[in-house]
């Protein structure tokens, strides 16, 4: 279980968020642009510092500002798929995917699973956006990460590629039993993929913000305080769930 507790002062607002994510669970962080979502997962990855915070994974402390513990990203064994353009341009698809993994057959299996094996000898600049993100996903998964972080990996893609990648991610989520944190501003995407949805607005968890936007499209659906998507007609204690 990944446990995150972060307070960080930004120029415009303060991030103050606590959440947990179990192995095999996909937690979607949704919210408007500039809400602090990316900063949040960059802190989880160890790419950014925080003022106050504690991050643990299965009892292993990655960050504890009170105890002055900080494990750099290299020691957290994460998979991180960025929004775009983070494949190494000088390496082929295969060597990109194998960047952190010496097991060639495993890399081959992953590339096949994600449908990009036939592109293994190409350089990233010869790939489409969707293909690049598939390779990035293979690269992140090849090292057997303990946690998978996805920062709007589909946002720069066309609708068809996005749909295909959503399917791939669902497949991967079932195969790799790790906590997955997925940033998106697409509610449909979150609803399709996520086990839990955490709306982040101005650095805080704000379920009301999400439920207000959600009512138009899905009047029978609400996000509970612990991030679960709940169907009103199946939920007896709706009042309690929405807080």
């Amino acid at each position: 279980m990944l446990k995150v507790n972060i307070i960080k002062e930004l120029p415009a607002f303060e991030i103050n968020v606590s959440f947990e994510c179990r192995s095999g669970e996909l937690l979607a962080l949704v919210g408007p642009s500039g809400a602090g979502k990316t900063t949040l997962i960059r802190i989880v990855a160890g790419l950014e510092q925080t003022d106050i915070g504690r991050i643990t994974f299965n009892g292993e402390t990655w960050l504890d500002t009170r105890e002055k513990i900080f494990r750099p990203p290299q020691e957290r064994n994460l998979g991180y798929v960025f929004q775009e353009h983070t494949l190494f341009p000088h390496l082929t698809v295969f060597r990109n995917a194998a960047f952190a993994c010496g097991d060639r057959s495993k890399v081959a299996d992953l590339l096949k699973l994600l449908g990009v094996w036939h592109l293994k000898d190409r350089k990233p600049r010869k790939l489409s956006g969707g293909e690049r993100q598939r390779v990035a996903l293979a690269q992140a998964l090849a090292k057997d990460p303990k946690v998978l972080l996805l920062d709007e990996p589909f946002s720069a893609l066309d609708v068809v590629s996005r749909e295909q990648l959503r399917g791939d991610l669902k497949k991967i989520k079932e195969e790799f039993n790790v906590p997955v944190i997925h940033i998106t501003h697409d509610l449909d995407e979150a609803r399709y993929l996520a086990d839990s949805i955490l709306p982040v607005v101005h650095g805080k968890i704000d379920t009301d913000w999400l439920n207000m936007r959600n009512t138009d499209n899905r009047p029978n659906e609400r996000i509970s305080n612990d991030g679960k998507i709940v169907e009103l007609h199946t939920l007896k204690n709706f009042r309690g769930a929405t807080g």
Partner: peptide, 14 residues
Amino acid sequence: DRRLLESAYVLGCS
């Protein structure tokens, strides 16, 4: 691109 370096760090590179 600094994101390439960050990507390398996350992938375990010193």
